[in-house]
C-alpha cells in the first residue's frame, strides 16, 4: 500500500525550503546589511526573496543603515523611490574619513559642509571609487560658489587641502576638475573652456549637475537636465577614481547622490 506516501506532502517540512515567501521576507527584515548579503548568496530563492518587487528587505535596511536626517529629508528621499538605490547611493556618499580637516559631513550623510576658513581650498572624496562600467553622480551646490567651485574625480593619492583659493582638482596627474565658476576644466594643470559651447547658461545655486564617467572608454562629462555639455576629461587612467569636489567659499554645502548607470539617450 504505497498510496499514502504523498499525503501531506508540501506542508510537512524537513527544512526551510518550505517556509512561505512572506515569512522568509520577514526574517530578512530583521538582519543587518552583512547578514542580508550572506543570506542573499545562500541560494537563488533567498536572493529573489531579498530582491523582491516590494523591496521590503531593502526598505528595512535603509531604515537601519541610513542617518535619520536623510530619511526625514523629503528632497533626498524623493530622489530614490527604490530603497536599493537609496542604500547604494549612501554607500557611495561623501566619506567622513577621506575629507579635508576644514570640512565635515552633514547629519544627512549626503552633504558636505566647509567651515569658513580664509585662504585655503578644501576637497572631499566619496566613500567608494569606480573602476569599470558607466556611472552617474548628481551634485548639488546649495550655497554660493565663491571664486572656485570644482566638481570632478580624484585618485586616492590626491591631496584634499591647499593654500589659497584654487581649483585644486586637476592641478596634478591625480585629479580632474571642472570649475563651474570659471567654466573651465582643469586636467594636468591645463585649463580648457567647458562647456565648449559659449551660449550655455552658467550653473546656478541648487541646480543638479550630473557627472557621467565611462571607465571603459576612460572619459567623463557633465550634463544638466537634458543638456549634455560634452566630454570634459579624456584619457582617464584605469585606476580607482573617486568622485570629488573642491570648495573655497565659507559655509559651502554640496550634496552628492550616486545614481548608478545613467539612462543613455
Amino acid at each position: 500500500m504505497q498510496l499514502n506516501v504523498r499525503k501531506n506532502e508540501g506542508f510537512h517540512t524537513r527544512d526551510i525550503r518550505n517556509l512561505p515567501t512572506h515569512v522568509m521576507e520577514l526574517i530578512f527584515t530583521f538582519l543587518d546589511l552583512n547578514d542580508v548579503f550572506s543570506s542573499m548568496l545562500a541560494c537563488r530563492r533567498w536572493y529573489s526573496i531579498i530582491y523582491g518587487k516590494q523591496r521590503i528587505v531593502f526598505k528595512s535596511l535603509v531604515l537601519k543603515t541610513l542617518p535619520k536626517a536623510a530619511l526625514e529629508d523629503v528632497r533626498i528621499v524623493n530622489i530614490f523611490p527604490d530603497s536599493r538605490d537609496f542604500l547604494r547611493a549612501f554607500s557611495y556618499a561623501w566619506s567622513p574619513k577621506d575629507i579635508s580637516g576644514t570640512m565635515s559631513i552633514c547629519s544627512n550623510g549626503f552633504t558636505v559642509y566647509r567651515r569658513p576658513i580664509a585662504q585655503c581650498t578644501d576637497a572631499v572624496r566619496g566613500k567608494r571609487s569606480v573602476t569599470h562600467g558607466i556611472h552617474a553622480f548628481d551634485f548639488v551646490w546649495h550655497t554660493p560658489f565663491g571664486t572656485a567651485a570644482v566638481i570632478g574625480l580624484a585618485t586616492e593619492s590626491e591631496r584634499l587641502h591647499c593654500r589659497g583659493y584654487d581649483s585644486l582638482l586637476g592641478k596634478s596627474q591625480f585629479s580632474w576638475g571642472w570649475n563651474i565658476v570659471d567654466k573651465v576644466t582643469v586636467q594636468m594643470g591645463k585649463s580648457n573652456a567647458y562647456p565648449k559651447c559659449p551660449n550655455i547658461q552658467p550653473v546656478k545655486i541648487g541646480q543638479k549637475i550630473r557627472l557621467i564617467i565611462d571607465c571603459d572608454h576612460h572619459v567623463a562629462g557633465f550634463e544638466r537636465g537634458e543638456d549634455f555639455f560634452g566630454i570634459a576629461f579624456t584619457e582617464l587612467p584605469a585606476v580607482p577614481l573617486y568622485p570629488a569636489v573642491a570648495a573655497v567659499y565659507g559655509h559651502s554645502e554640496v550634496s552628492m547622490y550616486y545614481i548608478g548607470p545613467p539612462d543613455l539617450g
Binding site: 525550503r17 520577514l26 530578512f28 530583521f30 547578514d35 543570506s39 548568496l41 545562500a42 537563488r44
Partner: peptide, 29 residues
C-alpha cells in the same frame, strides 16, 4: 514573529557557507 526573530538570530554574523549548512540550502549559484 517569534519564529522569524529566532531564524534571524540563527543567520546573524554567519558566513554564506555557514548559512547554507544551517538551513540546508544548496548553493545553486
Amino acid at each position: 514573529d517569534a519564529g522569524c526573530f529566532r531564524l534571524g538570530y540563527m543567520t546573524e554574523n554567519r558566513t554564506v557557507e555557514e548559512i547554507r549548512r544551517i538551513f540546508q540550502e544548496s548553493g545553486d549559484f
